[in-house]
């Protein structure tokens, strides 16, 4: 890539920052070349974030209808999934899967709730609540 071809498409996700690429100048020497964003990166980043949003929305709906625990919503809201939540709490996957159901989560001990709260960066009380909007 030539330095003048380095994309400068002001990605909104960068919030005014730039990232560093390496590119060749007119003489073919490699130089450090900041980029303010690229169409390809923006598309796939938006796609990944939209997928988290979709999961969080679906989970919010399920929790609202009483089909899932509020934990599932908060898990997706914090950009996690079952595997990641299991890894970051140290619980086995089947236990986390159980806790994503409303009944099991309600009966959970204070200590287990704290582990979830800690992994998701929330207080145990926040885990119980659903926001008015997903």
């Amino acid at each position: 890539m030539k330095r003048k071809e380095v994309p400068q498409q002001n990605a909104k996700a960068f919030m005014g920052h730039s990232k560093l690429l390496y590119a060749q100048d007119e003489q073919g020497n490699y130089v450090r070349a900041p980029s303010s964003g690229w169409e390809a990166e923006e598309i796939v980043l938006d796609q990944a974030i939209a997928e988290y949003e979709r999961q969080a929305r679906d989970a919010w709906q399920r929790a609202h209808e009483g089909l899932a625990s509020t934990l599932e919503y908060h898990m997706f809201r914090e950009r996690m999934d079952l595997v990641l939540l299991a890894q970051s709490t140290g619980f086995l996957k089947w236990r986390v899967r159980r806790h994503l159901k409303p009944g099991a989560f309600q009966k959970l001990s204070v200590r287990c709730r704290e582990r979830y709260a800690d992994a998701l960066g929330k207080t145990p009380a926040q885990l119980d609540r659903l926001p008015a909007q997903p």
Partner: peptide, 11 residues
């Protein structure tokens, strides 16, 4: 594409 470009790879 994200693994290739977005995660700080220098391009």
């Amino acid at each position: 594409v994200r693994m290739q470009e977005e995660i700080g790879t220098g391009g």
